[in-house]
Amino acid sequence: MRPSAYQVNVIYQRLLAHEADAPGDFIELLLDPLIEELRRRFPALPLPDLIIDVVTDTLLAFVQSPNSYQMERGDLWKYLLMDAWGDLLNEWDKEQRRRAKEVPFNLVAHDRSDRNSNVVEEEVMQRLGMTFLPEGMDTQTAVSHLYIAIPDPRDRQVLLLMYNGERRTSAFATVLGIEHLPIEVQRQRVKQVKDRLRLRVKRYGGKIREHQ
Protein backbone atom coordinates (compact mmCIF):
# COMPACT_ATOMS: atom_id res chain seq x y z
CA MET A 1 0.00 0.00 0.00
CA ARG A 2 1.24 3.47 -0.86
CA PRO A 3 2.72 5.14 2.24
CA SER A 4 1.51 8.56 3.24
CA ALA A 5 3.45 11.62 2.17
CA TYR A 6 4.14 12.26 5.85
CA GLN A 7 5.73 8.82 6.36
CA VAL A 8 7.88 9.28 3.27
CA ASN A 9 8.93 12.74 4.29
CA VAL A 10 9.94 11.71 7.81
CA ILE A 11 12.41 9.15 6.49
CA TYR A 12 13.50 11.46 3.70
CA GLN A 13 14.53 14.01 6.33
CA ARG A 14 16.52 11.29 8.10
CA LEU A 15 18.25 10.52 4.79
CA LEU A 16 19.20 14.17 4.48
CA ALA A 17 20.51 14.05 8.05
CA HIS A 18 22.75 11.10 7.05
CA GLU A 19 21.32 8.71 9.61
CA ALA A 20 23.02 5.39 8.98
CA ASP A 21 19.82 3.34 9.08
CA ALA A 22 17.72 5.76 7.02
CA PRO A 23 18.57 4.21 3.61
CA GLY A 24 17.28 0.80 4.70
CA ASP A 25 14.13 2.27 6.19
CA PHE A 26 13.48 4.37 3.12
CA ILE A 27 13.91 1.39 0.81
CA GLU A 28 11.74 -0.84 2.99
CA LEU A 29 8.97 1.75 3.11
CA LEU A 30 8.81 2.28 -0.64
CA LEU A 31 10.12 -0.81 -2.38
CA ASP A 32 7.05 -3.05 -2.29
CA PRO A 33 4.48 -0.28 -2.84
CA LEU A 34 6.37 1.00 -5.90
CA ILE A 35 6.68 -2.52 -7.30
CA GLU A 36 2.97 -3.03 -6.70
CA GLU A 37 2.10 0.24 -8.42
CA LEU A 38 4.18 -0.54 -11.51
CA ARG A 39 2.82 -4.08 -11.67
CA ARG A 40 -0.67 -2.65 -11.58
CA ARG A 41 0.16 -0.42 -14.51
CA PHE A 42 1.96 -3.13 -16.47
CA PRO A 43 0.09 -6.34 -15.67
CA ALA A 44 1.13 -8.01 -18.90
CA LEU A 45 4.86 -7.34 -18.73
CA PRO A 46 6.48 -10.64 -19.75
CA LEU A 47 9.47 -10.08 -17.43
CA PRO A 48 8.02 -9.61 -13.93
CA ASP A 49 11.45 -9.49 -12.28
CA LEU A 50 12.33 -6.50 -14.41
CA ILE A 51 10.02 -4.30 -12.35
CA ILE A 52 11.57 -5.51 -9.09
CA ASP A 53 15.10 -4.84 -10.31
CA VAL A 54 14.28 -1.46 -11.78
CA VAL A 55 12.53 -0.24 -8.63
CA THR A 56 15.34 -1.62 -6.49
CA ASP A 57 17.98 0.16 -8.54
CA THR A 58 15.98 3.38 -8.48
CA LEU A 59 15.83 3.31 -4.69
CA LEU A 60 19.43 2.17 -4.22
CA ALA A 61 20.53 5.12 -6.33
CA PHE A 62 18.17 7.60 -4.70
CA VAL A 63 19.23 6.96 -1.10
CA GLN A 64 22.82 7.63 -2.12
CA SER A 65 21.97 11.08 -3.42
CA PRO A 66 18.70 12.20 -1.83
CA ASN A 67 19.47 15.80 -2.75
CA SER A 68 18.61 14.97 -6.35
CA TYR A 69 14.98 15.49 -5.35
CA GLN A 70 13.69 19.02 -4.94
CA MET A 71 10.49 19.37 -3.01
CA GLU A 72 9.13 22.13 -5.22
CA ARG A 73 9.10 19.66 -8.10
CA GLY A 74 6.23 17.79 -6.49
CA ASP A 75 5.45 14.72 -4.47
CA LEU A 76 8.40 12.41 -3.68
CA TRP A 77 6.32 9.30 -4.36
CA LYS A 78 5.49 10.54 -7.87
CA TYR A 79 9.10 11.56 -8.42
CA LEU A 80 10.32 8.05 -7.58
CA LEU A 81 7.52 6.44 -9.56
CA MET A 82 8.38 8.46 -12.65
CA ASP A 83 12.07 7.73 -12.15
CA ALA A 84 11.41 3.98 -11.98
CA TRP A 85 8.95 4.28 -14.85
CA GLY A 86 11.54 5.93 -17.09
CA ASP A 87 14.14 3.31 -16.21
CA LEU A 88 11.61 0.57 -16.86
CA LEU A 89 10.90 1.94 -20.32
CA ASN A 90 14.61 2.12 -21.06
CA GLU A 91 15.20 -1.43 -19.86
CA TRP A 92 12.21 -2.69 -21.79
CA ASP A 93 13.44 -0.89 -24.88
CA LYS A 94 16.78 -2.70 -24.55
CA GLU A 95 14.98 -6.00 -24.07
CA GLN A 96 12.84 -5.35 -27.14
CA ARG A 97 15.91 -4.62 -29.24
CA ARG A 98 17.52 -7.79 -27.97
CA ARG A 99 14.39 -9.76 -28.85
CA ALA A 100 14.09 -8.11 -32.25
CA LYS A 101 17.43 -9.68 -33.15
CA GLU A 102 15.96 -13.07 -32.41
CA VAL A 103 12.75 -12.83 -34.48
CA PRO A 104 12.52 -13.39 -38.25
CA PHE A 105 13.32 -10.49 -40.55
CA ASN A 106 9.74 -9.95 -41.78
CA LEU A 107 8.60 -9.32 -38.20
CA VAL A 108 11.39 -6.89 -37.55
CA ALA A 109 10.23 -4.93 -40.57
CA HIS A 110 6.95 -4.26 -38.78
CA ASP A 111 8.74 -3.15 -35.67
CA ARG A 112 10.48 0.16 -35.26
CA SER A 113 14.09 0.33 -36.27
CA ASP A 114 14.60 3.73 -34.72
CA ARG A 115 12.76 6.18 -32.54
CA ASN A 116 11.64 8.33 -35.47
CA SER A 117 9.49 5.79 -37.25
CA ASN A 118 6.67 5.03 -34.83
CA VAL A 119 3.86 5.96 -37.20
CA VAL A 120 1.63 3.05 -36.28
CA GLU A 121 2.32 3.37 -32.59
CA GLU A 122 1.80 7.12 -32.45
CA GLU A 123 -1.50 6.82 -34.26
CA VAL A 124 -2.62 4.07 -31.91
CA MET A 125 -1.64 6.19 -28.93
CA GLN A 126 -3.55 9.18 -30.26
CA ARG A 127 -6.66 7.12 -30.72
CA LEU A 128 -6.19 5.14 -27.55
CA GLY A 129 -5.82 8.15 -25.25
CA MET A 130 -4.82 5.85 -22.43
CA THR A 131 -6.16 7.37 -19.25
CA PHE A 132 -3.49 5.79 -17.08
CA LEU A 133 -0.73 7.89 -18.62
CA PRO A 134 0.55 10.59 -16.28
CA GLU A 135 -0.12 14.17 -17.26
CA GLY A 136 2.47 15.79 -19.43
CA MET A 137 3.91 12.55 -20.79
CA ASP A 138 5.37 13.21 -24.24
CA THR A 139 4.41 11.18 -27.29
CA GLN A 140 7.72 9.33 -27.41
CA THR A 141 7.36 8.14 -23.83
CA ALA A 142 3.75 7.24 -24.47
CA VAL A 143 4.77 5.20 -27.50
CA SER A 144 7.41 3.43 -25.44
CA HIS A 145 4.64 2.72 -22.99
CA LEU A 146 2.59 1.14 -25.73
CA TYR A 147 5.49 -1.20 -26.45
CA ILE A 148 5.22 -2.49 -22.92
CA ALA A 149 1.45 -2.78 -22.94
CA ILE A 150 1.35 -4.40 -26.38
CA PRO A 151 4.77 -5.87 -27.14
CA ASP A 152 3.90 -7.75 -30.33
CA PRO A 153 4.21 -5.50 -33.41
CA ARG A 154 1.47 -7.49 -35.18
CA ASP A 155 -0.90 -6.78 -32.29
CA ARG A 156 -0.21 -3.08 -32.66
CA GLN A 157 -1.02 -3.27 -36.37
CA VAL A 158 -4.26 -5.12 -35.56
CA LEU A 159 -5.11 -2.49 -32.97
CA LEU A 160 -4.65 0.27 -35.50
CA LEU A 161 -6.94 -1.52 -37.96
CA MET A 162 -9.53 -1.83 -35.22
CA TYR A 163 -9.28 1.88 -34.46
CA ASN A 164 -9.62 2.65 -38.15
CA GLY A 165 -12.89 0.75 -38.16
CA GLU A 166 -11.60 -2.03 -40.40
CA ARG A 167 -14.12 -4.88 -40.59
CA ARG A 168 -12.73 -7.17 -43.27
CA THR A 169 -11.25 -10.40 -41.96
CA SER A 170 -8.86 -10.45 -44.89
CA ALA A 171 -7.20 -7.21 -43.72
CA PHE A 172 -6.54 -8.66 -40.27
CA ALA A 173 -5.51 -12.01 -41.75
CA THR A 174 -2.84 -10.27 -43.83
CA VAL A 175 -1.36 -8.55 -40.75
CA LEU A 176 -1.46 -11.79 -38.81
CA GLY A 177 0.01 -13.79 -41.69
CA ILE A 178 -2.82 -16.32 -41.75
CA GLU A 179 -4.25 -15.68 -45.24
CA HIS A 180 -3.38 -19.22 -46.26
CA LEU A 181 -5.77 -20.72 -43.68
CA PRO A 182 -9.44 -21.56 -44.43
CA ILE A 183 -11.69 -18.52 -44.05
CA GLU A 184 -13.50 -19.97 -41.03
CA VAL A 185 -10.23 -20.50 -39.21
CA GLN A 186 -9.13 -17.00 -40.19
CA ARG A 187 -12.34 -15.52 -38.72
CA GLN A 188 -11.85 -17.48 -35.52
CA ARG A 189 -8.20 -16.44 -35.13
CA VAL A 190 -8.93 -12.80 -35.89
CA LYS A 191 -11.74 -12.77 -33.34
CA GLN A 192 -9.45 -14.27 -30.69
CA VAL A 193 -6.79 -11.63 -31.28
CA LYS A 194 -9.31 -8.78 -31.30
CA ASP A 195 -10.95 -9.99 -28.09
CA ARG A 196 -7.58 -10.31 -26.41
CA LEU A 197 -6.58 -6.79 -27.45
CA ARG A 198 -9.92 -5.28 -26.38
CA LEU A 199 -9.39 -6.82 -22.95
CA ARG A 200 -5.83 -5.57 -22.71
CA VAL A 201 -6.75 -2.04 -23.76
CA LYS A 202 -9.60 -2.06 -21.28
CA ARG A 203 -7.22 -3.07 -18.50
CA TYR A 204 -5.15 0.01 -19.27
CA GLY A 205 -8.17 2.24 -19.12
CA GLY A 206 -8.46 2.69 -22.89
CA LYS A 207 -11.47 2.08 -25.08
CA ILE A 208 -11.85 1.02 -28.69
CA ARG A 209 -14.57 2.70 -30.69
CA GLU A 210 -14.36 0.60 -33.81
CA HIS A 211 -17.53 1.66 -35.51
CA GLN A 212 -16.95 5.42 -35.61
Partner: peptide, 9 residues
Protein backbone atom coordinates in the same frame (compact mmCIF):
# COMPACT_ATOMS: atom_id res chain seq x y z
CA UNK B 1 12.00 -7.89 -2.66
CA UNK B 2 13.82 -6.36 0.30
CA UNK B 3 16.04 -9.43 0.66
CA UNK B 4 16.78 -9.22 -3.06
CA UNK B 5 17.57 -5.51 -2.73
CA UNK B 6 20.05 -6.28 0.04
CA UNK B 7 21.83 -8.71 -2.28
CA UNK B 8 21.83 -6.16 -5.08
CA UNK B 9 23.32 -3.55 -2.75
Amino acid sequence: ALARAAQRA
